[in-house]
Structure formats: C-alpha cells, structure tokens
Design a protein around this nucleic acid. Sequence first.
DNA 1: TTGTATGCGTTATCAC
DNA 2: GTGATAACGCATACAA
Lengths: 343, 343
Amino acid sequence: MEDRVSKRPTIADVARRAGVSKGSVSFALNGRPGLAQATVDKILAAADELGWRPSNRARSLSVSKAFALGLVITRDPAVLSSDPFFPAFIAGVESVLSTRGQALVLQVVMAGESEEDGYRRLAQDARVDGVFLSDLRHDDPRIDLLVELGLPAVTLNRPDGESPFPAVILDDRPGTRAVVEHLVELGHTRIAQVAGPSAFVHATARATAFVETLTAAGLEPLTETGDFTAAGGIEATRRLLALPEPPTAIFYANDRMAIAGLGAAQAAGLTVPDDLSIAGFDDSELAEYVHPGLTTVRADPYRFGEAAALTLNQLVDGAADVPDTELPPAQLVVRGSTASPPV
Amino acid sequence: MEDRVSKRPTIADVARRAGVSKGSVSFALNGRPGLAQATVDKILAAADELGWRPSNRARSLSVSKAFALGLVITRDPAVLSSDPFFPAFIAGVESVLSTRGQALVLQVVMAGESEEDGYRRLAQDARVDGVFLSDLRHDDPRIDLLVELGLPAVTLNRPDGESPFPAVILDDRPGTRAVVEHLVELGHTRIAQVAGPSAFVHATARATAFVETLTAAGLEPLTETGDFTAAGGIEATRRLLALPEPPTAIFYANDRMAIAGLGAAQAAGLTVPDDLSIAGFDDSELAEYVHPGLTTVRADPYRFGEAAALTLNQLVDGAADVPDTELPPAQLVVRGSTASPPV
DNA sequence: TTGTATGCGTTATCAC
DNA sequence: GTGATAACGCATACAA
C-alpha cells in the first residue's frame, strides 16, 4: 500500500515477473534470436503488464549513445529572429527524430564565442550522437574540428574542401539562373545582385550563378554584398540606387534583404515593379503577402531537414558509406515584383 | 603507445592517480565537507592533470537528472516558420543554460499530434528536468498534464486558471493601450483590430486591452480575428476594408499579420498611412524596413527567455517557493505607418 | 538460457 | 574528523 508511487519498472522487475533472467529479457525485447518463442511471449507479456519502457539514461550509459542529434546555431539573436530557414528545417529534422525516440539538442553560440565552441561543448558533454553542419563556409574549419572530436556530421550542401561527411544537397543555382533568365527575358539589361557574405559557400554559389548566367546573356553583372539581414539589404540597395546608372532589377540572396530592399526602393519614391524589379530567395511566408508580391526562389527546408536527419542517422547507426542525397533544386516563383524595365 | 586514443578519464582514474578512493574523489569534486584540505588539493590536482570532466550520462543515471530543459513547439509551419518570438527567446534561454552546462531540447509536435503529446514524450523519455510553457491557452490543459507528469515548468505569462508553476510575465497591455491612444490622438475614430485566436491568453489580453482603451476613449471598437499568420492577416484585412464604413486604422496582434495587412491595403489601392494607418505587435526585424515603417509594440523575447530559464532552474534546483518574475512591459514604437486619418 | 561484468558518478554505510 | 567500501541505477555484451 505504501509503495503505490511505484517507480518505473526495470528489466529486473520484468525478469522477476516472467521468471527469467535480465539477459533474456533484453534479448526478448530486442527481438534477438536464441530464445524459445514461449519464453519470448511470456517476457513480452510481463513487460506489457508492468508497462515497462526502456530508460534512456541507462541505455545512454550502457551503449554510449545520447539518442540525440545536435544543431549549432551561431547567428546573433537579431539575425536568428527572422530567418525562415531554421524553423522549417528543424521541423523536418524532428519528423525523423520523433519516430526514433531521438531528441534534438539546440546549441546557440553566444556572442563572443566562436561557432567551434558550440560543437566542442556538444562533443565534450557527449550530448549528441551527431550534428548538422549548416551555413558552410569556404575551407570550413568545423570539418576538421568534428573529425578531431570524432563527432559524426552531415553537411548541408557540399563543402568546397575535402570532407569525410555525407552531404545533403539542395542546389541553389538552377533557381538563381531561372531568376536571372526571367529578368533578362523581361528585357532588363542593368541587373544587380545583393549577394550574401562571400565567406559562405551558399552565398558564393548563388552569386557565381548570378554572374555566370548574366555573362552568358552578354550582360554586365553588378554586385553589392549584404549580410543577409534587412538592415544590410537596405544599405546595399541604397548604394545601388545611388549609382549614376542604377540597375532596373535587383536580385537579393535572401527574402529578408529583398523585402527590406523593396521598402527602401519605395521609400526612395520608386514604384516596384514599374521603376525597379525586385527578386528574392527563400520564398518566406511574407514574400507572398508584401505588395507587390515578391518574385523569389523556393527551396524546401522541411525536406532538407528530413533528408539531413535520415542521412545523419545512417552514419550514427554505423553505416560505412553513406551516400550524398540530392534534393530537388530550388525553383523560381514569379510574383508581382518583377516586370519589364521602364522604357 | 598503443593507448594513445586515451578514452576519457573517469573518477576511478583520478582516484588511482591521487591514491584515494572513488568516493573521496566525488566528495572533493563536489566540494563536500569531510575531507582534509590536503587531500582535496591532491585530488583536484590529479583531476586537473588528467583533464577529467564529469560524464553527463553517468551523472544523469545516478542522480536521475537530465541536465536539460525542454521547449515544445507545435509544428504548424505557419507558426513555426516565421515567428520572431522563438528564436530570440531561445537565445535568451541558452544564455543561461550554457553557463550551467545544460542543454536545450527542442520538441516539435508533428501534424496530427496534440501539443500534449510533445510534453508526454519529453517526460516519458526523461529527456528534460523542466519545460517552458508558452502560448498559454485559456484553461490550458497542459498545466494539469505537467502536474500529472511531475514535470517542473514555468509559464510564459500568467495562466488564467490555478497554476502551481511560477510565471514570467511580460505585460502586453501597456503597449496595446499605447497603440490605441496613439491612434486616438492622431484623430482616428474608426479603429479596428485584427486579434489573434481567442483561445490564447495573450491574444485575448491584447484584444481586451484594445477594446477597453477604445471604449474608455468613447469610441466603438471593431474586431476581426486572425490566426497570427500572414494569410490570416490578409483575409481579416479584406473583410475590414470591405465594410460599408471601413476603419481608418487597424491594429494587428502581431507584425506578420500587420505586414501582410499592409500589403493587402496597398494592393487594394490604399496609401498607408494617408488612407489607412496600420500598427503591429512584436517589432520584428522587418517592421523597421518595410515601407512605410511599421508602428508596432516592442517586447524583449531575449530577456523573456533569460528570465524564464533562470526561474525554471530555481525550480529544478529544488527551490520551494519560486516567485514570479515581471519584465518591463512592451512599449510603443512609432514609425511611418500611422498618421492622421484622411479628412 | 543464465549469470555476471561493464560503464560512471553519487551516496549511504562503515572503519579507523 | 578522514577516508574507504560497496551499493545503486539500467541496459547490454559476453562468457559460462
């Protein structure tokens, strides 16, 4: 009567109830061969009656696994707070983890810390079995770091250097090319881009695709660099509009800069798209609802997260050669913010 | 030479090196009394030389703690994908957790699941020592659930029913009142709001403050309900603008709806703020950069997260009576989207 | 099939 | 007052 609180049953309880040993219980619960069917049934019935559930903690200790994956986010709160990528990416990751009883550990790197510190913490605390490597930089030092830490990882897109980790790839370039071709077809000849910081692989991928497509069309590319924030988008836009011959169309490396740029253009008295065409990248929620609707490039961060989690789990499960995964490339979405240039 | 891989040192290693027992090592490392100072020094030196770090897993198992806190987020892509609150809130939470070696576990509730399932998973898997309770609903069933699960929690704002959990409070009402008064001072007499779903405590807090302030000013409140998404903001805006006597000012319960409403108004041929004043709530990044800049209400989700983590940790650490924490209330930020009504 | 050792830190008990 | 010893929590690998 006293013991009503009944702590969680352990395999020892199950074993006692089924009249077998702990080892047998473990075998039965994991469906391993070597036990008579009758014994298995008896054990499973006992476990069921007791409502036994495995203990993550004990399992973690005995198999040296965390049953969790980690995501390190470095961006400062301002940047973090309106990036449309991560929340959807995380939802995709969770869709995989929840089916396996895994957890997602978020590690936010604080101001003044290096991103590497975040991974180091996750590794030292043995908090996760593997990590997602996002926002790859050129010659990304995190790859060597993770090798050194012995932490499995999957890279979001392919790094430019050597990498022992599988990559999940969502090619930004077809979408970028499509934007540029769309603008060229509309008749624009002075087309600018506001690129992301050149340290990032995906930023330069988009920037290079922009330049190459424009050059292939026989046009002169014009490039300003932003920092993916709205404030940066505004500044880059002002610089472009202050040129002696300002562009008639601007492609931004993400929607946040594009929407800010749209605001800056309107604030400068320009009408979009009549005076200036604007295109973004991401197809974030607001892109559809600002006025005019933002022409942009749509990726699928949810599937990206899903694929990344599946790939990383193969590695965590000990697969030898985990292949890269290629996702459908980003696609152009045409809305009202792009039109033919003023005559 | 062979053993260069050198697995992590354990307290047994430290004990051997210091020439004492495991128990003594534990006492020394935890600063518990009962050891001679010389012995303590010897042990700490040995631990230091070996680079000993406690194993989370073993600690978790022996003290029955996860050293992690949990946040459950519903995977409504709309809510998740561009809500400016969570990322900043999370950064604030992490600023506290990182100093304590705790981790943040994110639990995303998948479509078709109830939010309660998320908490249940965290509790059953014993993944966390406590959880944050956000987006409180009226008579929120999660409170009883968490009591039943025995999971400590902190509520973001105060629930309307009984609650055994401490609350961290950021009062939305002063900001809401300030918006309404600002609009009234500008001379508006037909002021509408697009409220959030009435199931949420914070949504009705804002909605009620709106109605009360307007009524106190002798004006007739006009209310439409949105769902906090951009699409919902658009629809509510269209309904308002289609009225025989449309409002000259609209207050939205969040910036996403407001920015979408701004787009809808502009798409309908209205000039903001000349024909229609618009105000939001959140002061999200883009609020400053759309055109015209969005008059809105600024809260501080980073401090909110910080305070919530501190409060929750007191509870987790076993404090008996953890007091509520009151944060500075949300404040009005006036930008270009509000002006006097058309004459 | 069973019993036992293992992984690791904490804590209760006991001896000097 | 000091410190050692052993049990505990839990699942699993492996020898018996």
